[in-house]
Design a protein around this nucleic acid. Structure first.
Lengths: 310, 310
DNA sequence: GCCGGCGATACTTCGCCGGTATGGAGGCAG
DNA sequence: CTGCCTCCATACCGGCGAAGTATCGCCGGC
């Protein structure tokens, strides 16, 4: 059976007249008669009653037509859906990201993307950089935000652009002696109870700290370890000590804490956006588009990697 | 777009390889390439990624394939459903009937039909003979059970067969003086409080009674009128009087009542099964089949009207 | 009883699907 | 690096079948 048969049967049912249905279909009447006859032979059931008053579907015809309508609707929807998916209006975007990315670039970007592409289902996976890179290479993710450029097997096939820069800052409770300071020196840090993040991506901050503190790591060894930056800020707010984390913490103003620069200024690994260029889905393309429009510098880096046309 | 395109796209997605998909479809590879290319041109979206590792649907392709599967399922179901409807396995049967038909033939027939054709939706409309005949002529019903042959405009186009015969009987409470009698004479009836049915079909019983009682209708004028035979039996059970109704009341044994013949035996209008032969639906055919097998005499009458082949 | 409308049938035409042959691109082995 | 192989795309041709034209059969109405 072909879609033609369904269209013809529906037209015939609608017009109740072979001649008029054929005219509406843009064909002559005999071919329509033949196609309907073929259809009735194939289904093994008489689908239409030809009466003097007109052509009417039999109960079998009614059952057939109901299905035929749905089948043709599905076919029409197939084209529409394919077009939408191709334009990135629908689909899914699987994003892997480190928790601290929720501080700065993600809330804004995801918010805009969600509004611009309401049809795209966002699948958000908070995970350490290594794992998300592996998942991206394995095709289980579409895009990642990691601390530092992706490493590991297959990483060389990924396209990566840094998303802003980052350095180490301190966070203290409002009542803390340092609360009023714009910056804290290294020697001041050494006398404090430090609060740092643990987890797989911990090295990012810790390496920065070791660089800063040099060989004197006693303060670091006795540090309080928290699961994420939010906990760090919470603990700092309690006055427990001096929290240390990425400067993007400033993006999440929180009552009861103050942020201070740490001197000398110590760079931390950049947040890096990565994706596999080989199978770039339309949804990913739309996402990159949003990022491009939202962050001019990231957009420029993308243009450099992919060409402005993409 | 034709069903062929959907089948080809699904085969290609399944096999991930033009050559193998074509072989599975029983065609050569170039035609498959061309059809897929045509499909992609028509949808305006690339549906498959041709990679070295195989052919994989793009997001647009996934969206298309999901719809394609449903469309083809609907098409297959169309044939199946049409066949079922043609064989009377599904569909609907709109039956109009007088309430007293629920006493005898309907419970048995409907029960069997419901078990034999669970897919047929029974629409039951209890209504007076005149109304159901009009509805049958108007095409709002498929079959009726009336008291007496159908009358009114268009009734001559209906096929009708009597469903058994009927006569007047009496029903009394178990404690009634007549309870032990096998039969009650007319003179005995005249001395009793009578209970008869009202409603549009009342004349059936009333005419029988008038015939029986002759000119002495005093007993009838003072009779209690009930809406249906069940009420009659209920009132009789209370000992209020002597109920009068069709002999089919015996089919519904009820504690507390006894049935008595009325002498002389008085015929009542037959229950008559009618339908429009011109547009006999498969469900109706199946129903008639059930009736035929269930009631040999009705079957014989049907064969006489329609020919044994039907 | 003739005419007109409607669907079915017979036969022809032509478009398109499918087949064969071939091209081109990319990976792999020697 | 080159030749080969795999795989999909393109080109061209033949045949099936869908569509067109002409006509018939049937039924109802004027």
């Amino acid at each position: 059976m072909e879609a033609r048969h369904l269209r013809y049967a529906l037209a015939l049912a609608e017009h109740g007249h072979f001649g008029r249905a054929a005219r509406a279909l843009g064909i002559a009447q005999p071919p329509l008669s033949k196609q309907i006859a073929d259809l009735e032979r194939e289904t093994g059931a008489r689908l239409f009653d030809r009466t003097r008053q007109g052509v009417f579907p039999t109960p079998a015809g009614e059952a057939f037509l109901a299905r035929a309508r749905r089948a043709l609707d599905e076919m029409a929807a197939a084209t529409v859906d394919a077009g939408r998916a191709a334009r990135g209006e629908t689909g899914r975007l699987r994003l892997g990201f480190v928790a601290s990315a929720l501080l700065d670039p993600l809330p804004d970007v995801l918010g805009r993307f969600g509004r611009e592409r309401p049809g795209v289902r966002l699948e958000l996976h908070e995970m350490a950089s290594r794992r998300s890179t592996a998942a991206l290479v394995a095709g289980e993710l579409d895009v990642t935000v990691t601390l530092g450029p992706p490493r590991g097997a297959g990483a060389e096939r990924l396209v990566s652009v840094p998303v802003g820069h980052d350095h180490l800052i301190a966070v203290v409770g409002s009542a803390h002696p340092y609360a009023g300071q714009a910056s804290i020196g290294v020697d001041q840090l050494r006398r404090q109870q430090l609060i740092v993040a643990a987890g797989e991506d911990e090295p990012a901050v810790v390496i920065g700290l070791r660089t800063l503190l040099g060989e004197d790591v006693a303060a670091l060894d006795g540090a309080t370890v928290a699961r994420d930056v939010h906990t760090i800020m919470g603990l700092a707010a309690c006055g427990i000590g001096v929290g240390l984390g990425p400067s993007r913490m400033r993006s999440v103003p929180r009552p009861g804490v103050r942020f201070c620069e740490v001197t000398p200024r110590t760079a931390l690994p950049d947040l890096v956006l990565s994706f596999a260029d080989r199978d770039r889905s339309p949804a990913l393309g739309a996402f990159l588009d949003t990022v491009r429009r939202n962050c001019p510098d990231v957009g420029a880096a993308l243009d450099l990697r992919l060409g402005p046309a993409c």
